[in-house]
Design a protein around this nucleic acid. Structure first.
Length: 472
DNA sequence: CTATGGCACGGATT
DNA sequence: AATCCGTGCCATAG
C-alpha cells in the first residue's frame, strides 16, 4: 500500500467510523477483499491503482519498501523473527490475461468449482509459464471425483504439443493436493499416492503390484483369485488391501467432500486462495522464512493527486462537497487497508515465531495457544484477533493450504501422537490403553476424549481395526 | 463384563 | 451471548 503515514500515526487518528471499517476489512479474506477493492476503485474517482512494480530479477512483486524481499534481502540469520511483509500479488489466473487467450472457462460442476484453482495455485510455482494454459485446461476437465475425464491425446491435439509434455504436467498435478488428482484412472491415482507416500513412510511392495496387475480382481473382492494370481498367501493380500483402503483414495476429490472421516474439513472452507503465504527465502530451506500477506491487487492504491488538485476548481459548491466526500472515503479506505495489513503483519510475525516448528516439522509440534493470549501480547482486543483469523487460509512452505485457525487448535498435537501410537502398534489397542500411552507422552486426556480424537481422525475402534476390509 | 458411542453439562474460548 | 471442547454418566453391543 502507498504509505506516507506510519502505522503509529494511523493509530492516533483512529475514529469510530475508521474503526468500524477497519474491522470490516480485517476479517475479509483475499477473495472478498478483492471485490471490495474493485468496487471502490471503479466507483470512486479519487482513488487510483498504481501500476504494479515487480522485481527485475525474480519477477516477484516488490515489497512495500520498494525493495524485493525475496532476493535483495540478505540471508537472514534471525531465527525467531521471520521476514513479514505485505505483498501485492496478482490473481493466479493473471488478471486480464484471460481475455486474450481462449482459456476454456466454461462453468464447472458446482461441487468441484474451486478444485481447479486450488490445484493450479499449488503447482504454479513449479509450472513453466507457457504450460499454465495446458494445466488450466486439464484441470477444468476434472470430473467430480478429481479424475481427468478427457483423454491425454485430446490435450495433445488441442494444444499441438508432444505427449511427453502433457504427461509431465499431469505428473505435477497428480502430486498436488488432493494427491492423485488429474489422473486418468483410479489406479493411476492410487499409484501417485503411493509414490508420494513413499517419501515419508514405507509402503508394502505388494500394494503397487496389486494395483498394477490385479486391480480388477481386487475391486471385486476376489482375494483368493488374487492371491493365486500373484502367488502370495491370502492373509498377506488381505493385509495389503487393508493398507490400501486405509491410506489410499481411488477418487482423490472425494477425500475432501463427502468423506465424513474428516469432519474438520468443511465444504467450502477447503479450497481457498491463501491469504498468507509462508515460504523459504528464495525457496531455499537453508534460508529463513518469509511471510507474505497477500493483497489481491497487483499494484498499490493511492489518492489520485490530480483529483485532489481538481477540487479547488470545482464548478459549484455542491460539486465541491461531493468531490470532497469521495476524497474522504478514499482516504479512509486506504487507511483502513493499511491498518488491516498492519494488524495481519503483527499477528503473523508473532504466530510464525511461535509456531515455527509446526510450520516446518508438522502438526505434532503445534504449540497450544489461544487467541486470547495473542491478543494480550499484541495489545489488541481479543475480538480483533478472532476477526483476523476467521476465514483465512495459509500456505505453508510445503505448499499445503490450511486454515489459519488451525494455528490455535489445542488438540492437534495430541491427535497426531495418537495417530502415531496406533500406526506403530501391531496389536489393536483399546481406548483405555491408548489413554495410558498418551498420558505417558505428556497428553493427559480422559478415555472418552481418546474416543473422540479417534473419531476425528477417522480411526476405527480397536475391534474393527483388525484385518477386516473396508469398502473401497 | 468390557469397550464404545450418545447425550448433556460446565467451563473455557471467541 | 454463543459456541466449542473435554468429560462424566449411562445405555448398548459383543
Amino acid at each position: 500500500m502507498y504509505q506516507t503515514i506510519s502505522p503509529r500515526h494511523i493509530h492516533r487518528q483512529t475514529t469510530t467510523a475508521h474503526l468500524a471499517q477497519t474491522m470490516r476489512l480485517l476479517f475479509k479474506p483475499v477473495d472478498d477483499l478483492q471485490k471490495e477493492i474493485d468496487e471502490m476503485v471503479s466507483n470512486n474517482p479519487a482513488i487510483e491503482l498504481m501500476e504494479k512494480r515487480t522485481c527485475p530479477t525474480c519477477h516477484r512483486p516488490l515489497g512495500e519498501h520498494g525493495s524485493c524481499p525475496m532476493c535483495s534481502h540478505p540471508k537472514s540469520n534471525i531465527q525467531d523473527e521471520p521476514v513479514v511483509y505485505v505483498s501485492p500479488r496478482e490473481d493466479f489466473y493473471g488478471r486480464g490475461e484471460r481475455s486474450n487467450e481462449e482459456m476454456p472457462d466454461e462453468p464447472l460442476a458446482s461441487m468441484t468449482e474451486e478444485l481447479p484453482e486450488f490445484v493450479l495455485r499449488q503447482i504454479s510455482p513449479e509450472l513453466k509459464p507457457e504450460d499454465r494454459r495446458i494445466a488450466a485446461y486439464m484441470l477444468s476437465n476434472l470430473d467430480e471425483d478429481g479424475l481427468l475425464e478427457i483423454d491425454l491425446y485430446e490435450v495433445v491435439r488441442y494444444f499441438r504439443v508432444p505427449l511427453s509434455r502433457v504427461k509431465d504436467i499431469q505428473h505435477l498435478i497428480q502430486r498436488a493436493e488432493p494427491i492423485g488428482v488429474g489422473s486418468c484412472t483410479p489406479q493411476e491415482a492410487l499409484l501417485a499416492q503411493i509414490d508420494v507416500l513413499r517419501e515419508s513412510a514405507k509402503v508394502p511392495e505388494l500394494a503397487e503390484k496389486i494395483i498394477r496387475t490385479g486391480w480388477e480382481l481386487a475391486t471385486h473382492r476376489q482375494y483368493r483369485e488374487l492371491a493365486h494370481l500373484l502367488g502370495v498367501p491370502l492373509k498377506i493380500i488381505q493385509q495389503t488391501m487393508h493398507f490400501i483402503s486405509e491410506n489410499l483414495v481411488p477418487f482423490p476429490a472425494r477425500a475432501h467432500y463427502g468423506d465424513t472421516r474428516d469432519p474438520s474439513r468443511k465444504v467450502g472452507e477447503v479450497y481457498h486462495r491463501p491469504d498468507i503465504i509462508i515460504s523459504y527465502l528464495n525457496d531455499n530451506p537453508e534460508n529463513s522464512l518469509v511471510v507474505e500477506i497477500v493483497m489481491p491487487i497487483s499494484g498499490t492504491l493511492r489518492i489520485n493527486p490530480m483529483f485532489r488538485e481538481a477540487i479547488h476548481e470545482a464548478g459549484t459548491e455542491e460539486q465541491k462537497e461531493s468531490w470532497k466526500a469521495y476524497l474522504e472515503r478514499a482516504e479512509l479506505f486506504i487507511k483502513c487497508l493499511q491498518q488491516r495489513n498492519h494488524t495481519m503483519e503483527r499477528l503473523m510475525r508473532r504466530l510464525v515465531g511461535l509456531q515455527r516448528d509446526y510450520i516446518l516439522k508438522g502438526e505434532k509440534y503445534l504449540v497450544p495457544v489461544t487467541r486470547f493470549q495473542i491478543s494480550i501480547e499484541l495489545e489488541v482486543h481479543e475480538s480483533t484477533i478472532s476477526r483476523a483469523v476467521a476465514g483465512k487460509a495459509v500456505q505453508l512452505p510445503n505448499r499445503r493450504i490450511i486454515p489459519l485457525s488451525s494455528f490455535f487448535d489445542r488438540s492437534l498435537p495430541a491427535r497426531m501422537v495418537l495417530k502415531e501410537i496406533i500406526d506403530a502398534e501391531p496389536h489393536p489397542l483399546s481406548d483405555a490403553e491408548l489413554m495410558a500411552l498418551l498420558a505417558d507422552r505428556g497428553f493427559p486426556v480422559a478415555r472418552r476424549t481418546v474416543a473422540k480424537y479417534r473419531a476425528l481422525e477417522g480411526i476405527l475402534p480397536a475391534q474393527m481395526r483388525k484385518p477386516i476390509l473396508r469398502e473401497i
